[in-house]
Amino acid sequence: MKRDLGNFTRGSQLIEHFGFMFAAGLKGPLIIALIVMCWLTWWTVSEGMSDHEVYLAWMHVYGVGYRFMEFDPRHDVAVKTAWGRTVTFPISLLDVYPPVLRACSNLWPTSFARRAGWYWVSPCRTRWCKCSSATPAFRR
Rank of each mutant, 00 (worst) to 15 (best):
Glu16Leu: 11
Glu16Asn: 13
Gly19Ser: 02
Phe20Trp: 12
Phe20Gly: 15
Phe20His: 15
Met21Asp: 14
Met21Pro: 07
Met21Ser: 13
Phe22Arg: 14
Phe22His: 12
Ala23Leu: 15
Ala23Tyr: 14
Ala24His: 13
Gly25Thr: 14
Gly25Ser: 12
Leu26Ile: 08
Leu26Gly: 08
Leu26Lys: 12
Lys27Arg: 15
Gly28Gln: 12
Gly28Ile: 15
Pro29Leu: 06
Pro29His: 12
Leu30Phe: 12
Ile32Cys: 10
Ile32Tyr: 11
Ile32His: 11
Ala33Asp: 10
Ala33Leu: 09
Leu34His: 15
Ile35Trp: 05
Met37Pro: 05
Cys38His: 07
Cys38Met: 05
Trp39Lys: 03
Trp39Gln: 00
Trp39Asn: 07
Trp39Ile: 13
Trp39Asp: 03
Leu40Phe: 02
Thr41Ile: 06
Trp42His: 10
Trp42Glu: 05
Trp42Met: 03
Trp42Asn: 11
Trp43Glu: 05
Trp43Cys: 01
Trp43Ile: 13
Trp43His: 11
Val45Met: 07
Val45Leu: 06
Ser46Val: 11
Glu47Ala: 08
Gly48Pro: 05
Gly48Glu: 04
Ser50Arg: 09
Ser50Cys: 09
Asp51Ile: 13
Asp51Thr: 15
Asp51His: 06
His52Val: 10
His52Gln: 07
Val54Tyr: 00
Val54His: 09
Tyr55Arg: 08
Tyr55Ser: 02
Leu56Lys: 11
Leu56Val: 06
Ala57Ser: 10
Trp58Asn: 12
Met59Asp: 14
His60Glu: 00
Val61Cys: 03
Val61Asn: 07
Val61Glu: 04
Gly63Trp: 06
Gly65Asn: 14
Gly65Ala: 11
Gly65Lys: 14
Arg67Phe: 05
Phe68Ser: 11
Phe68Asn: 13
Met69Pro: 07
Glu70Asp: 12
Glu70Tyr: 09
Phe71Ser: 10
Phe71Ile: 13
Asp72Phe: 03
Asp72Gly: 09
Asp72Gln: 05
Pro73Gln: 05
Pro73Cys: 09
Pro73His: 12
Arg74Leu: 11
Arg74Ile: 04
Arg74Met: 13
Arg74Val: 09
His75Thr: 15
His75Trp: 09
His75Pro: 01
Asp76Leu: 01
Asp76Trp: 01
Val77Gly: 07
Val77Glu: 06
Ala78Tyr: 01
Ala78Glu: 04
Ala78Met: 01
Val79Trp: 00
Lys80Cys: 03
Lys80Ser: 01
Thr81Ser: 02
Thr81Arg: 10
Trp83Val: 03
Gly84Met: 08
Arg85Trp: 01
Thr86Arg: 04
Thr86Glu: 05
Thr86Leu: 00
Val87Ser: 03
Val87Arg: 06
Val87Asn: 08
Thr88Lys: 03
Thr88Trp: 01
Thr88Leu: 04
Phe89Thr: 06
Pro90Trp: 03
Pro90Arg: 03
Pro90Ala: 02
